[in-house]
Computed example of a mutant assay.
Amino acid sequence: MDITKLQRVIIDGLEDVKAQDIKVFNTTHLTSLFDRVIVASGTSNRQTKALANSVREFVKEAGGHIVSTEGEDVGEWVLVDCGDCVVHIMQPALRQYYNLEEIWGDKPVKVKLSGGSAFGGARVTADEDEEDDVDEAPARKTTARKAPAKTAGAKTAAKKAAPRKTAAKSGDAPAKKAPARKTAGTAAKTAAPRKTPARKTTRSAG
């Protein structure tokens, strides 16, 4: 399925169960495993599970394929792998703590929202969908946070991990200057002059 259509179908599925604060991010420059990350909030375990189920149904009805679903046993963080698009449905406290927007979100995708906002939380139609990323979105330095032990697998870990930064080449580091050696003449000049002892005078006998 075309990525534009897939993200639209997923957003429709999330909105059908009233997901909150939906955000869409382009991740093609960060990983080859998927092209989009969609993050949404559910207010309870029951709602996060219902949101994940709604996403699966909408994608399947549109002819898409669901690779896997993880985290439904607890419901605090449910991950739905739709192939080219990964959906993270999280409760607000967990979403704030792991802050996936900071890890994956340096290229938000413009989508027209029913609430009037430019990013996430609304039904998107084919004519309204925008594929352009936000211009000049600054990349933020982040520290990779540990994924919860409840989710496992190399592919899942890659979906939740922060992109690695390449270390600077050793040739780019400025060469340290060797300390200048003092010459014998300089050492002689800097040596403290020796003091001559004062001569004792003998008083004449009165």
Rank of each mutant, 00 (worst) to 15 (best):
R123A: 15
A168H: 05
K160H: 07
K146G: 05
G63T: 09
E101N: 09
T142L: 04
D84W: 03
Q47M: 10
A149D: 13
H88W: 02
T143V: 15
W104K: 01
C85P: 11
S44E: 02
T28C: 05
K18C: 03
S170Q: 09
A198T: 14
T190W: 03
A162V: 11
K155Y: 11
D127A: 14
P174N: 07
E70R: 05
T151M: 12
E130L: 08
N53S: 15
V80C: 01
S32L: 06
R140W: 08
D2E: 15
S68A: 14
A62I: 01
T31F: 01
P174M: 06
A192M: 04
G83I: 06
K107L: 13
S41V: 04
E70T: 07
T156C: 06
A158K: 14
K146A: 12
L100W: 02
V87R: 00
V59R: 00
P163T: 01
T201A: 12
P179R: 04
D73N: 10
K169C: 07
Q20F: 05
T43Y: 04
K23E: 12
K112A: 14
A93M: 08
G185R: 13
R95P: 14
G71T: 00
T186I: 07
T43G: 06
Q20H: 08
D73M: 10
K176A: 15
G75E: 10
T196I: 10
A175H: 05
D35I: 03
A192P: 03
G83R: 10
Q7W: 06
A154L: 10
P174H: 04
L6A: 14
A122C: 05
D84C: 06
K200S: 11
A158D: 12
K60Q: 15
R199G: 06
K177R: 14
K189F: 06
W77S: 15
P197A: 14
I89F: 00
D172W: 07
N53M: 06
K160P: 01
K23M: 11
G121Y: 02
V59Q: 00
V111K: 02
V86F: 02
A188I: 11
T31R: 01
A191T: 14
R123S: 13
A192R: 13
G206E: 12
F34Q: 03
T190S: 13
K155W: 09
P108T: 04
G71D: 00
T48D: 07
L30Q: 15
P174R: 13
L113W: 02
A147R: 09
G13N: 00
A126V: 12
V134F: 11
P138F: 12
L100F: 10
D133C: 09
L100H: 03
Y97S: 08
I3K: 02
D73T: 13
C82T: 12
K112P: 01
V80T: 09
R199N: 05
A122Y: 07
G116W: 07
I3S: 08
A157E: 09
T4R: 09
Y97C: 04
